[in-house]
Design a protein around this nucleic acid. Sequence first.
DNA 1: TTTATAACCAAGTAAATGACTAGGTAATTA
DNA 2: TAATTACCTAGTCATTTACTTGGTTATAAA
Lengths: 160, 160
Amino acid sequence: MRLSTKGRYAVTAMLDLTLNGSDGPVTLAEISETQGISLSYLEQLFAALRSKQLVKGVRGPGGGYYLGREADEISIADIICAVDEWVEFTRCGGNRDCQDGKRCLTHNLWDDLSNEIFSFLQSITLAELVERGGLKEQGCRKEKEKASIMPTASADTAAA
Amino acid sequence: MRLSTKGRYAVTAMLDLTLNGSDGPVTLAEISETQGISLSYLEQLFAALRSKQLVKGVRGPGGGYYLGREADEISIADIICAVDEWVEFTRCGGNRDCQDGKRCLTHNLWDDLSNEIFSFLQSITLAELVERGGLKEQGCRKEKEKASIMPTASADTAAA
DNA sequence: TTTATAACCAAGTAAATGACTAGGTAATTA
DNA sequence: TAATTACCTAGTCATTTACTTGGTTATAAA
């Protein structure tokens, strides 16, 4: 299982599409600009998204990308799976090589957890995210001290 | 944010500790054997876990590792944060450079999602996982067709 | 007191992944 | 016909993963 910055880029881009796609398709150049992601990298991400029918491309001038289906029909899990290859590893599918049950037990536990995380992410749609999150605290300022536990290494995703 | 195989290794090892730690400390050699993870890699993971007080090491013969605190006091988020460095990236903390609000809006949305995932993982403890998941379906066989959506690339974590 | 057993520690490595660049082709609109 | 966009391929460099090698220290048992 994986859930890296690549997935974040994809979700961010899809959110951008959701928010700005109401009047005509959105170009990758625009997303690249506003989100600070390299154009070519976006192209690669969107190739994956397109292959899973999550976006629809329109060529030529005035072209760009639409969402492949309604925003309430696209889950976060869909997006992450498209770009990040959600891999299942507990390979003890047919209980050979299963260290007298011990290994298999923990594998099962991890498997359950993994499924839970998956269905959690599957339960959140783009539409929901925009409704719930976006409108409350509009501005860029937010006071909450969310990161007291987690080390905040300042990754720099600077726009060129 | 990150949630990779490294985190899976750590959670798996901690689950092993939870299950087998009742009678004396568990050695990394044992975990390495039963879980199929390289000993030295485990040492590195446990160095991180130890620095966060999630495990306690006992040296010498008969030594090994205990959980650093009760299993119901250790969350999955704790474990993943220890080894995987939960990084927050929306760096527009003080709304400069904020592409007339657009970028910041999606950043906020991602941020909210990220927090939700975090508190979700924080709400699941080792004890809970063991109680809920492990006892129901004991054996290695399980019928559920969980992975119809996700591509099951068979990663090979073979024991040497 | 020696020896085996474990945790602890440091450095290096091959392979994979991440994020990006360069340089195209193919549709489509103006 | 020219500009604009998606679409495609093949690189590159840095980071991360998972692992190896080769130690040292603490401690229990001999």
